[in-house]
Each structure stands twice: as structure tokens, then as C-alpha cells.
Simulated scan of single mutants.
Amino acid sequence: METDHYFYVLHCKDDTFYGGYTTDPERRLKEHNSGTGAKYTRLPSRLPAKMIHIEKFRSRSDATKAEYAFKKLTRKHKIAYLKEKGATECN
């Protein structure tokens, strides 16, 4: 059985974005919002976070490359990227 690999973006309560990698987006969002996800999303000021973008990839390598590229973007370019991909809640 092949595993699906995802790059996802969270919109945090403090109006910041968090990009990450997972094989299970639903589980990962629950982890973030319960405070057991990434260190970045553990701050109470960032929760709850909302998953506003998910992209599916065939390999972990492709998904993590997308994550890395997103994290290097400026906020302005992150918003443009998200809007281009159809995200509506990215200010």
C-alpha cells in the first residue's frame, strides 16, 4: 500500500502561517490544536489553528520540498501562493 504525503498550511489564531508535512492531515491538525504538534503551534496565542491548504504528493521528498519552499517565502508571497491555490482564509 502506498502512503500519501501532504504539505499543509495552518492559519494560526495570531494571524501567522505554519507550513508542515504529514501523512495524515486530520490527525496532524488535532495534534497541533491539542498542543502536541510543532513547537511553533504550542503557544496558546497561536491556537486554535485552522488548516487552510493541503497538497498531496507522491513522495515524502516532494512534499517536504514544497514545505521548505513555502517557509522561505515572505508573508506577502505566502498569501499570493495560498490565494493562487484556492485558499480563502489567508488575508
Rank of each mutant, 00 (worst) to 15 (best):
R28M: 07
T64S: 12
R60W: 05
E26I: 08
S34H: 06
K30W: 04
T41S: 14
F17E: 01
K56Y: 02
E55K: 15
Y18T: 07
G19E: 12
S34F: 05
L43Q: 14
A38N: 07
R27D: 04
A38M: 08
T64A: 12
A66D: 06
F70N: 06
L73C: 02
K56Q: 11
E55N: 14
N33I: 01
Y21K: 00
E67D: 00
Y21R: 08
S61D: 07
T64W: 06
S45N: 08
L43N: 14
E55W: 02
Y21H: 09
H77T: 07
D62F: 00
R75G: 01
Y40V: 09
P48F: 04
E26S: 10
A63I: 01
L29S: 00
S61F: 11
K30H: 11
L47I: 08
S45L: 15
G19A: 15
T41Y: 08
L73T: 00
E26R: 15
K50L: 10
D62K: 14
K65V: 05
T64M: 15
G35Y: 01
R75P: 00
L29C: 07
S45K: 15
R42C: 05
F17D: 04
R42D: 03
K65S: 12
Y40W: 14
R58A: 14
Y68I: 13
A49C: 06
F57N: 08
R60E: 11
M51P: 01
L47F: 04
E26H: 05
K39V: 11
T41H: 08
G20I: 01
A69T: 03
M51W: 02
G37P: 03
L43H: 13
H77Y: 06
K30R: 14
T23D: 07
P48V: 03
R27V: 01
K76T: 06
Y18H: 12
L47Q: 11
G19V: 02
H77L: 10
D24S: 13
N33W: 01
R60M: 12
S61C: 09
S59Y: 01
E55S: 15
T36Y: 01
K71A: 11
R58K: 14
R46W: 03
L43Y: 14
L73H: 04
K39H: 12
Y18F: 10
